[in-house]
Design a protein around this nucleic acid. Structure first.
Lengths: 352, 352
DNA sequence: CTGAAAGCGCTTACAG
DNA sequence: CTGAAAGCGCTTACAG
């Protein structure tokens, strides 16, 4: 039986260099007060032993975890993954590890929220596309754990979010300008328990939709409104309802590209040509959107992740009890939204 | 200035329960040797203090990290993300945290490989769609760090992989059965430095392609072979070359859905109808594939992630120096591949 | 500038 | 069954 090879520790280095572990620790941590000779001896010893300090031990004595969490509905929101990419690109250049927590239900969301609040779990978290309620937000605040929201907002928490009302407005106005008069709106469930998971983007996009309508003097027809889970399959059903109703819309604005793909499925089912018989606008500009030629609202997914990560890193550098006494609360940031016109929108063939 | 609230420790619990910290630790760790009264006192104290042991301290004294790594080219391989989903679903039910390392270049791959080898970084790693060379494999073995490969193989390492030769064969035979005679093959770069990142799946799929061809008595035409990076845009260029050549193929088998989407783009550019003028088969059955109706080879992406995770968990439970003296090397596992026929393949309109 | 020592919060032989 | 103590591998006041 081979003895398990014990990894080399700071003591080994100290012994070889003929100094105390304190000195080794100092050069390790870039402490400038270590004299030339000692420093060189240590550096040489580190090199010959190929020494790397034990992270866990550092964590314990420093009281930091050197890990950051990303918590998001990664697998049922295509957009989360693209935002994660942004996060990763900035964290990978930092000293922090990134651990991911995938949320599928309210229960997992709540479990992760409270787990992460424990003081020794992570040094910071970015929450993606999940809106903390007031209790959560307060708990985050009290814990002192740096948190930034991406694609969600809360008055007490820093965030990176798009101007969803503007997005909703741009999408709807585009359709109006093309000549559409009956424009349906499909979004996530506004009041179902699961909606807690979503951000409040839906409501804002709806607001934008209404504003565009009212600016154009168009009525708001409740028959043209549908809500349902973030699922292509279910959106397809909703669209089918809309399109087979007595007075169907000539255009549908969907609150996500996923919903929009369901709408396109429904159109195909019913042999409707897009955009001839039906125009559709999505939201997010997920990677696939370009491929399938979907007109949509772009909100710089990857960039929002990047900015969220940068904000968090900023928070980590500014201790709450800063010397000035004022903890610099980093403002929330807004991400630009733009309309991307592709092939799924056009003038209606038969005027309503 | 508020004092930072120190979190409650095992000492607080011990004090409140009127026992030693050793006893608290024992009940925490499910040690059965703790008597009724003591145990109850401790449990009550834990509850009233809402105590949760400090992970970092546990790690240090146990010499485990309780974290597992997933290392993969997440962002340039759509399939990685789906495999990650499988991983996540099993790890989230375990005691381990999952940290992700995204690889974009050979340099980052090598850096992560050697970082993770450090004894105190993680307890295990699953490597997705990256083929370790012999030096890496040996280093992994020597380190004693449990590693499992997903979508890659190495004789010295356990893995979960599909039978790529079979996949290549099935795809090609399908096209032959439809009546195609000139079938092109597009794959990742076989010899470029970056190909080290890819798995050897390409070569096997090529072998399957050749076998199907030779079985049918069809010649292997080098003019119908193209290789290029895992990129839709670049695959589009390769397909264009093929399709504008003097004697173009009537079908293209692409080694990934990403490549296949590039082929579809090229067909669109050239006003070729699919499948009338050109049939195309992809590989992977990524989520989008269903949406765009791509005929492809399914290889249970999520399941392969799940199995990889399960294998790793198994390795963690069987210590290398097992009492029996024989370390049970878990075999590698093969994932089923199936042909999924959708809308991009059909009989060629004009017989070659 | 540098060392001896205490401490971070756990776990676990070792005694009793 | 339970406690006192040592130990995991670092960091950092505190002396000198």
């Amino acid at each position: 039986m081979q003895p398990i090879t014990r990894s080399t520790t700071i003591r080994d280095v100290a012994r070889l260099a003929g100094v105390s572990v304190a000195t080794v620790s100092r050069v390790l941590n870039g402490n400038h007060g270590v004299r030339g000779p000692a420093r060189q001896a240590v550096e040489r010893a580190i090199k010959t032993l190929n020494f790397e300090p034990n992270q866990t031990a550092r964590r314990l004595s420093l009281g930091k975890t050197f890990t950051l969490a990303a918590i998001a509905p990664f697998f049922y929101r295509a957009s989360s993954v693209e935002r994660l990419r942004g996060l990763e690109s900035v964290f990978s250049t930092s000293a922090y590890d990134l651990v991911v927590y995938n949320v599928e239900t309210i229960e997992t969301r709540d479990r992760y929220f409270s787990e992460l609040l424990r003081p020794d779990r992570v040094d910071g978290v970015v929450v993606i596309s999940l809106s903390p309620d007031d209790a959560h937000a307060e708990a985050f605040e009290r814990s002192g754990l740096p948190v930034v929201l991406v694609d969600a907002v809360h008055p007490r928490l820093p965030s990176v979010h798009e101007d969803s009302a503007l997005g909703g407005y741009l999408a709807t106005r585009h359709l109006i300008e093309l000549g559409h008069r009956r424009i349906a709106f499909i979004c996530d469930e506004l009041n179902a328990p699961l909606s807690i998971i979503g951000s409040n983007a839906n409501i804002n996009r709806l607001a934008g939709y209404r504003r565009a309508l009212s600016e154009a003097g168009l009525p708001l027809d409740p028959a043209l409104f549908r809500e349902g889970p973030h699922s292509k399959r279910l959106a397809r059903g909703l669209a089918r309802e809309l399109l087979t109703s007595p007075n169907p819309p000539t255009a549908i604005f969907a609150v996500s590209d996923t919903h929009a793909m369901g709408v396109l499925d429904a159109a195909r089912d019913l042999n409707l040509r897009v955009p001839g018989d039906l125009s559709v606008v999505g939201y997010d500009d997920v990677e696939v959107a370009e491929y399938i030629g979907l007109t949509t609202i772009n909100q710089s997914l990857e960039k929002s992740g990047r900015r969220g990560a940068e904000l968090l890193l900023g928070l980590l550098d500014t201790p709450v009890d800063a010397p000035t006494g004022e903890s610099v609360q980093p403002g929330s940031e807004s991400i630009e939204v733009t309309l991307v016109v592709r092939g799924t929108t056009g003038a209606p063939l038969q005027r309503g």
